[in-house]
Computed example of a mutant assay.
Amino acid sequence: MKLKSQETKNNIKDVQNSCDERGIAIQKVGVSDVHLPFLIQTKNGSFQSVLAKIKLTVNLPQEFKGTHMSRFIEVLSDWSQKPVSAKEMEYILIDTIDRLHAQSAAIDINFKYFIEKTAPVSGFTSMLDYDCAFSGSLTRGQHLNFVLGLKVPFTSLCPCSKEISCYGAHNQRGIMRVKIKHQPGSFIWIEDLAELMEAEGSCQVYPLLKREDEKYVTEKAYENPKFVEDVLRDLVLSLRKVEGAQWFEVECENYESIHNHSAYAAHVETLK
């Protein structure tokens, strides 16, 4: 029975391995919207189990008609139970390049990451979710190109509103988005990047607040008014100080409370 099964397998025509004569090489081909559990390495040395949405691709030379889709899933399945950080991303891509006989590979891993937050006065703790992304690309024989992406909520209070009003000022919840690339051998933990980003709003966002905490965050925001431009510029100054940082991209968006539109600012910078 086993012999017959092997014989059938050998007789199946491999169309994707046939030659293509159109002369077009494809930079990226593979699988996207793959949902798998992944283990993300945390700063304290443990790991966090997350549901990841993944895209994994390789280059395809012009003479090949198609790639081997099943091998991408094999790679991801093998790595889904191992803690992943920047170093492991390189191994995943090397594994992909070897199995697919490719010259380059790229991966995007998007997931929700949870960090424990402590309320500023009551001390109650709870978990806040952050949208996080690991993006990596690798060419055979070269260093990993790794980018960490993080989206962080914050509170901002309008300086103009505070200045012109007899009392009060309008505020809003905003979102900071940062992508950061480090020199080979350097990196920043998700927890440290989140802390750096949260410090630049008028006030942090907390998932659990008691009345004394609500009083604190309301007054803190009032004492620290910032336009979306202020938030972005302060964040840029902080990112410039990150050791080993090579490049970053920043977006800040305020979901305005008195307008039916958002305020937006963005900045990209390559560091020396």
Results as ranks from 00 to 15, higher is better:
residue 4 K to F: 01
residue 5 S to G: 03
residue 6 Q to L: 15
residue 6 Q to T: 10
residue 8 T to Q: 13
residue 16 Q to T: 07
residue 19 C to P: 04
residue 26 I to R: 10
residue 28 K to T: 08
residue 37 P to N: 09
residue 38 F to Y: 10
residue 42 T to F: 06
residue 43 K to F: 00
residue 44 N to G: 01
residue 45 G to Y: 05
residue 46 S to K: 11
residue 48 Q to E: 15
residue 50 V to C: 13
residue 54 I to F: 12
residue 55 K to Q: 14
residue 58 V to T: 15
residue 58 V to I: 15
residue 60 L to D: 00
residue 61 P to E: 04
residue 63 E to T: 10
residue 66 G to N: 11
residue 67 T to M: 08
residue 69 M to A: 11
residue 72 F to S: 00
residue 74 E to F: 07
residue 77 S to V: 06
residue 85 S to N: 07
residue 87 K to I: 12
residue 87 K to W: 08
residue 88 E to H: 01
residue 89 M to G: 00
residue 89 M to Y: 03
residue 92 I to C: 03
residue 99 R to I: 15
residue 102 A to D: 07
residue 103 Q to F: 02
residue 103 Q to H: 12
residue 109 I to E: 02
residue 110 N to I: 08
residue 113 Y to N: 05
residue 116 E to C: 09
residue 121 V to K: 11
residue 121 V to F: 03
residue 123 G to K: 07
residue 124 F to R: 11
residue 126 S to N: 13
residue 132 C to V: 14
residue 136 G to F: 00
residue 137 S to C: 14
residue 142 Q to E: 10
residue 144 L to H: 06
residue 145 N to C: 09
residue 156 S to K: 01
residue 158 C to A: 14
residue 159 P to H: 05
residue 166 C to T: 14
residue 167 Y to T: 09
residue 171 N to Q: 03
residue 177 R to H: 13
residue 178 V to P: 03
residue 181 K to M: 14
residue 182 H to Q: 00
residue 182 H to V: 05
residue 182 H to N: 14
residue 185 G to K: 13
residue 187 F to H: 03
residue 208 L to Y: 08
residue 214 E to K: 03
residue 217 V to T: 10
residue 217 V to P: 07
residue 218 T to W: 10
residue 220 K to S: 01
residue 222 Y to P: 11
residue 226 K to D: 04
residue 227 F to V: 10
residue 232 L to Y: 01
residue 234 D to K: 04
residue 234 D to Q: 02
residue 237 L to E: 13
residue 240 R to S: 01
residue 243 E to S: 12
residue 244 G to F: 04
residue 248 F to V: 02
residue 248 F to Y: 07
residue 253 E to A: 09
residue 258 I to K: 09
residue 258 I to T: 12
residue 264 Y to K: 14
residue 266 A to G: 04
residue 267 H to S: 06
residue 269 E to D: 14
residue 271 L to S: 11
residue 271 L to C: 12
residue 272 K to F: 03
